[in-house]
Structures are given as structure tokens and as C-alpha cells.
């Protein structure tokens, strides 16, 4: 069953290979990718170690975002303390300088707070995640349970459709289906059966 609100590139027809065994899934994805076939995406119920390499995914740039938001926190916490305690209304306690070591803890906490929140926010933005949003791609309702799905464009220069289907079946796919493009609403869902 394909959910109604697919959002993968609507101008492409997509082949989905549905697997039950993560090891053979990983192996097949790697094989398909090494043939030069572009893999649109995979859907798995749990993080499969090594799949990002098998798919040829680049490392996420989120750490840079975390660094930037952390730096903002560092500047923010520092300037808050500087403004309130050193510039605006210095309080002298125990003959301590009005800008000193006692700012370290809050400075640290502010940096951590901004890093964590900034990172989480960037993560949600990057994945286009929002509370209440309908899941965009549910090829199989069990893809969050025990099925793994690989999505591949069917008009691939590197491989023809039947070869690809064979490859998926031989790799251990329990089901292979194709979503053809007939506009947003009226797509069709074709179950491809084994032909060998």
C-alpha cells in the first residue's frame, strides 16, 4: 500500500524494493549503488550501520550548524553576564572583580543550551519535520516496524528496469513495486512480480 501523499520527485517513476532482512538489504543496496545507480532514498525501522556508505551519502553538515549555534550561545551568555554584572550594575561581592571566574559556569551552560537547541532546530528544519505533519513517504506501513525499503528511479541510465527488479529479488526483496507518474493524485501502484 502506498500512502496518498508521496512527495518524492513527482516527475520520476520510482521502484521500491521491500526487504525483510537488514543484512541482505544492506548488501543489495551496496551492490545497486556500486553499479552506478542513484538511490533516491531508503526507509528503515532502525539505523542500519554502514548504509550511508553503501548509498554513497555524504556526511551531514549539521556539526557546523552546531558549532555556529554554540558560538552564538557563547557570545550570548558572555554578553548577558557582561552587560548585567559588569556594565549595567556591577555588584562587588567579596572584593571580586566584576568580570571574573565566577562567570564560567553560566557561560558554559549558555553555550551548551544554545548548541543543543540550535542543533535540534536545524535538524528539524533540515528534515522538514514539524509537529502534526503527515509522514511523507510510507511505502509500506511496516517500514517503521520490520521492513526496509529502497527507492530507486526506474528510468536509470545505468540499469534497465527488469535488471534492477531481478537484482532486488535476487538480493532478497520480498516485494518490488513501482510507482508511475500520472500526476499527483492518480498514481498507480504496480506490483512487479518475479519473471525468472
Amino acid at each position: 500500500m502506498i500512502d496518498k501523499n508521496l512527495y518524492l520527485d513527482r516527475n520520476k517513476t520510482v521502484i521500491f524494493g521491500i526487504f525483510e532482512n537488514p543484512d541482505s538489504f544492506l548488501e543489495t543496496v551496496g551492490k545497486v549503488h556500486s553499479k552506478g545507480v542513484d538511490i533516491i532514498d531508503c526507509y528503515t525501522p532502525f539505523p542500519i550501520h554502514g548504509i550511508e556508505k553503501a548509498m554513497g551519502l555524504k556526511r551531514s553538515l549539521l556539526p557546523i550548524g552546531a558549532f555556529i549555534s554554540g558560538s552564538l550561545g557563547f557570545i550570548g551568555a558572555g554578553s548577558l553576564q557582561y552587560y548585567t554584572m559588569t556594565y549595567d550594575w556591577p555588584i562587588i561581592i567579596g572584593n571580586k572583580p566584576s568580570f571574573g571566574v565566577s562567570f564560567v559556569p553560566v557561560w558554559f551552560e549558555g553555550t551548551i543550551l544554545f548548541t543543543a537547541f540550535g542543533l535540534a532546530l536545524l535538524f528539524f528544519i533540515r528534515n522538514k519535520m514539524l509537529h502534526g505533519k503527515m509522514p511523507s513517504e510510507r511505502v509500506d506501513m511496516r517500514q517503521t516496524d520490520d521492513r526496509m525499503v529502497v527507492a530507486i528511479a526506474s528510468d536509470n541510465p545505468a540499469i534497465n528496469k527488469s535488471e534492477l527488479t531481478d537484482m532486488l529479488f535476487n538480493g532478497g526483496a520480498v516485494e518490488v513495486k513501482e510507482r508511475t507518474n500520472h500526476g499527483y493524485e492518480d498514481f498507480t501502484d504496480v506490483n512487479l512480480t518475479r519473471n525468472n
Binding site: G94, N95, K96, V101, S102, V104
Partner: peptide, 12 residues
């Protein structure tokens, strides 16, 4: 290092 320094600095 900070734990030791800060506490000694603070209590003075």
C-alpha cells in the same frame, strides 16, 4: 583544574 581553582579563588 577549574574546579580546584574556582573554589579556592571564590572562598579566598
Amino acid at each position: 583544574w577549574v574546579s580546584q581553582f574556582l573554589l579556592i579563588w571564590y572562598a579566598n
